[in-house]
């Protein structure tokens, strides 16, 4: 992105136009910020305060009891172990799925960009086309395949599914990156007698750090935020945090405990939010990279 300061001549500071611009931006910011604000203040209130006060009033005496309950003793159906169960399930899904899908994507991208393999172009085209198609078209055949192999509803199944559906974007961004590396680098390595795997591990992967960062952001956000695939493939013992959150909130009986609900929601949003605030502009690069499909 170019430096905006060098663009157009400065305008008078308090013209009506400037006021209009700032008020539009202010109200937009309000619209986007309010839900996070409401989530936060609600999670620090007592139920008594929620019943009597308004949704935007600040907690009189902020307390952590809703967070503690959300984490360790909120109920989903019969069990009352809190959302921590879902958190650890999500971690167990996230780590292998992210590492393997990025490795496979990098390998695919490298082989596609630098080696001539018959049918590889066609396979890549089909892969990219497939990325547009709703999961609903794929799920049942996949359920049957996992059921046939006796792995339906397991950690293996959900990790494999994430690798399958992460493959198009991962392959694309690595292929694009490796295609931009001058051919001379590759040729020189070949002249020195380096083989397929040596070039990949010793030369190409170390050069690909920027794409690796983008890939990690993309996959961590996508896998952590997934609901549908986890619901279908993970099985009762591995339900990810999003599924458990929905179960906690939407299957309550009696009066809803909004403070606990909002604390649980915050906890679920925390991992991608922290990643977003830490990664800054990399996050934008990430979503831009993934949006140039095809």
């Amino acid at each position: 992105m170019t430096n905006p300061a060098s663009r157009r001549p400065a305008k008078a500071r308090f013209s009506p136009g400037r006021i209009g611009i700032y008020s539009f931006l202010f109200f937009s910011a309000l619209f986007f910020a309010l839900p996070l604000f409401v989530m936060l203040i609600t999670s620090f209130k007592t139920m008594e305060e929620i019943r009597t006060g308004s949704i935007f009033s600040l907690p009189r005496a902020p307390e952590l009891s809703a967070w503690i309950k959300a984490w360790s003793s909120a109920c989903t159906g019969m069990t009352c172990d809190g959302i921590q169960v879902g958190f650890w399930n999500s971690v167990r899904i996230l780590i292998p799925a992210t590492v393997i899908s990025i490795f496979v994507g990098a390998l695919n991208g490298y082989a596609l960009a630098m080696w001539k393999v018959r049918w590889a172009g066609l396979a890549f085209l089909l892969l990219m086309t497939g990325a547009f198609i709703p999961y609903q078209v794929y799920v049942f055949p996949l359920v049957q395949l996992f059921a046939l192999s006796g792995t339906f509803g397991s950690l293996f199944a959900i990790v494999t599914v994430h690798i399958i559906f992460g493959m198009p974007v991962m392959t694309l961004i690595f292929r694009n990156y490796f295609s931009s590396i001058p051919e001379e680098v590759f040729k020189a390595a070949r002249m020195d007698g380096a083989g397929f795997w040596w070039i990949f591990f010793a030369i190409m992967l170390p050069m690909a750090t920027p794409v690796l960062i983008v890939a990690v952001i993309w996959q961590v956000t996508g896998i952590w935020n997934d609901f549908l695939l986890g619901l279908i493939f993970a099985g009762r013992d591995n339900l990810p945090m999003t599924v458990q959150l929905n179960n906690i909130v939407n299957s309550q009986f009696g009066e809803r405990e909004y403070n606990v609900d909002m604390a649980a929601t915050m906890l679920t949003a925390l991992v991608p939010l922290v990643l977003y605030f830490v990664s800054g502009r990399w996050f934008v690069r990430g979503i831009a990279a993934g949006s140039v499909k095809g």
């Binding site: 986007f32 409401v38 956000t221 935020n225 609901f227 959150l245 909130v249």
Partner: peptide
């Protein structure tokens, strides 16, 4: 502020 909602899941969005 404008972009942070995109980092959150649709489940979180819907519940809020």
């Amino acid at each position: 502020i404008f972009l942070y909602p995109h980092a959150m899941s649709f489940i979180v969005t819907g519940l809020v």
